[in-house]
Amino acid sequence: MEEPTMTRIATLCASALFAGLAFTNAWAATPTEMLAGYSSQAGSSASAARGQEFFTTKHGKDWSCSSCHTATPTGDGKHAATGKHITPLAPAANAERFTDSAKTEKWFRRNCNDVVGRECTPGEKADVLAWLISLKK
């Protein structure tokens, strides 16, 4: 092959690899895969201890994550304002949690805005998910 063609192929391969890394969570099928994607995006390892602290602390708004999901999210929760029932958040207690990346992102976006007043960072998501994965039923 000619040099320009090889350069274009190498560029396309690198672009595809970067796109795959950037959207790791798009194909996540398990909480562990989703955690790996968030950790990769954050560029650091997740910390379950930081996740628990983030989850149970207020961040300048009226609620913390635990306001609705309880401090031990292996059981049912209840929305703080509406009283609506919330199924357990921890994957050990609810096998459907963190298996659908679109749904996970939707709820992270919505809940982080309510709790923190902004979207959560990939590192914050990784920490919270690491803690939730560590919980046993």
Rank of each mutant, 00 (worst) to 15 (best):
S101P: 13
A46I: 09
H79S: 06
K106D: 03
K61M: 14
G43S: 06
S101G: 04
Q41R: 14
P73V: 12
E105M: 10
S45F: 10
I9L: 14
R50E: 12
L12T: 12
A16Y: 06
E53K: 13
K78P: 01
A42D: 07
P122M: 01
R8P: 00
A126E: 02
P4D: 03
P73H: 09
D76P: 13
E105T: 14
T72D: 15
K61L: 13
N94Y: 06
F18T: 12
H69W: 09
K125H: 07
E119Y: 06
A14P: 05
A130Q: 01
G83F: 09
K78I: 09
T5P: 00
N113W: 03
R109L: 02
P73S: 12
W107F: 15
T56S: 13
E105H: 10
H85C: 00
L17M: 13
T99V: 08
P122I: 02
S67G: 14
N113S: 11
H79Y: 07
A16S: 13
P31V: 09
A14M: 13
F18P: 00
N25R: 12
E96M: 05
A22K: 04
Y38Q: 12
C68A: 08
E119L: 05
S39W: 00
T99M: 01
E53Y: 06
S64T: 13
T72H: 14
A16N: 01
L12R: 07
G20S: 11
P31K: 08
S67I: 07
K103Y: 15
K84D: 08
G60Q: 11
T70D: 12
V115H: 02
W131N: 01
M1K: 07
T11C: 03
L17R: 08
D76N: 15
A42K: 07
Q52T: 03
S64R: 10
A102H: 06
D100E: 09
K137A: 07
V116S: 05
A26Q: 09
G75C: 05
H59Y: 07
C68V: 09
L135G: 04
K106G: 01
M1H: 11
V116P: 00
H59R: 09
N25H: 08
V128A: 05
K58H: 10
S134A: 08
T11V: 07
S66K: 07
H85K: 14
A16T: 10
F108T: 01
G75L: 04
G117Q: 05
G60T: 11
P91G: 03
L129V: 04
S15Q: 03
A80M: 11
N25S: 11
F54S: 06
